[in-house]
């Protein structure tokens, strides 16, 4: 699979998201503007200007109407995808590291940084999925992380829980209505920062990536670690592929730790693991800096990765990818068909 190289950003990528149909890719980088791209040919649809600092995060609502971005200028902004117009600005005390819409786009959460005496928080807003509507200033809810700041967070199935990954390697579950902490588990090594949380299509389980060089598949209902994917490099991002039972992990030695220029040395590869068997299947090279983010097309047709090198590489899966199955999987499928 020959990737499409998206060379629109001038600095390191921070997050990539596909819209629900998988035809548009949104990307944020430290260069202060978000970009939208056509997934099939890599043409740039547009950019969103307005932020005054590095962008850390982006998410798109399920109807592909608006996107939300969070940045180091301590704001979360909503944008009209089509026109690129800024619809709303919420200001915070510290940088915003993660935003995510819930399943039906009625709520948005934002994770704020712990800095300058302010504790890290997870803030929830009610969203009106209407370009004309006035968005509320009110925060629907604020969860304050007293122990260890949240680095990433997301909505579970039916917007029942908010799941957050923390700086100290723990994963916690909050009631999405009351903000009460229901559960907290040491999923990763203590003091290994959780760098990413991404959901399965039905949001019943999720994958976490961590600096402890592992990614874990965790059940959203009881936070049970179901699978562990062990790699040899700190991970920055992990994603679950629909259609096929794989996960894609991205990472690499942090730029400051890289002592040589050898790309091979830094392990700047996207790694494919089998979701159920926890075995590595393959790697995709190409970046010459660590992978900061990977995202999978919700339709399962491709994936994109964004690196410290400032490039987004969009890959379309080819036939070999879809044909690849383990013998036991084939047998199980054959059995199902018989029944």
């Amino acid at each position: 699979m020959r990737p499409i190289l998206l060379q629109g950003h001038e600095r390191a990528l921070t997050q990539i998201r596909y819209n629900r149909d998988g035809d548009i890719i949104f990307s944020t980088a430290k260069d202060q503007h978000a970009c939208a791209w056509y997934a099939h040919n890599g043409e740039r649809l547009g950019t969103y200007h307005g932020h005054q600092g590095a962008l850390w995060t982006v998410d798109v609502d399920p109807t592909s109407t608006i996107i939300a971005t969070g940045a180091a200028d301590n704001t979360v902004r909503l944008w009209d995808i089509k026109s690129g117009k800024c619809l709303k600005v919420w200001e915070f005390n510290t940088a915003v590291k993660r935003v995510e819409f819930n399943e039906d786009g009625s709520k948005l959460l934002a994770v704020t940084e712990k800095r300058m005496g302010f504790l890290g928080t997870i803030v929830v807003f009610d969203i009106k999925l209407d370009l004309e509507a006035e968005q509320t200033d009110e925060r629907a809810m604020t969860i304050t992380c007293e122990d260890s700041k949240a680095t990433v967070a997301g909505w579970s199935f039916l917007s029942k829980y908010i799941i957050a990954g923390h700086e100290d390697g723990t994963v916690s579950q909050y009631d999405a209505k009351t903000g009460e902490q229901l559960d907290n588990t040491q999923a990763h090594e203590p003091d290994a920062l959780i760098t990413d949380i991404q959901w399965s299509p039905d949001r019943t389980y999720f994958i976490t990536a961590s600096k402890d060089k592992t990614a874990k598949l965790i059940n959203a209902r009881d936070l049970e670690v179901m699978k562990t994917y062990v790699t040899d490099t700190p991970l920055n991002s992990a994603s679950i592929t629909p259609k096929k039972d794989f996960v894609i992990l991205g990472g690499g030695q942090a730029a400051m730790d890289v002592t040589t220029t050898s790309a091979r040395q830094g392990k700047f590869e996207a790694r494919f693991y089998h979701k159920i068997f926890e075995e590595e299947i393959g790697r995709v090279r190409g970046h010459f800096g660590p992978l900061n983010t990977v995202a999978v097309d919700p339709q399962g047709k491709g994936y994109a990765s964004g690196g410290e090198d400032g490039y987004v590489r969009v890959h379309q899966f080819d036939k070999g990818y879809f044909d690849f199955t383990y013998e036991v999987e084939r047998q199980a499928r054959a059995q199902q068909q018989q029944q």
Binding site: L158, I276, E329
Partner: peptide, 30 residues
């Protein structure tokens, strides 16, 4: 190895079936 994989796959499929069932029920209830 094959036996182990089969077991893992069966476990996974069983878990998925359970989760899907639960999810459906919960949706109906709501």
């Amino acid at each position: 190895v094959v036996e182990n994989r089969r077991r893992l796959l069966d476990e996974w499929l069983a878990w998925r079936a359970g989760v899907e069932e639960d999810l459906k029920e919960e949706k109906e209830a709501l």
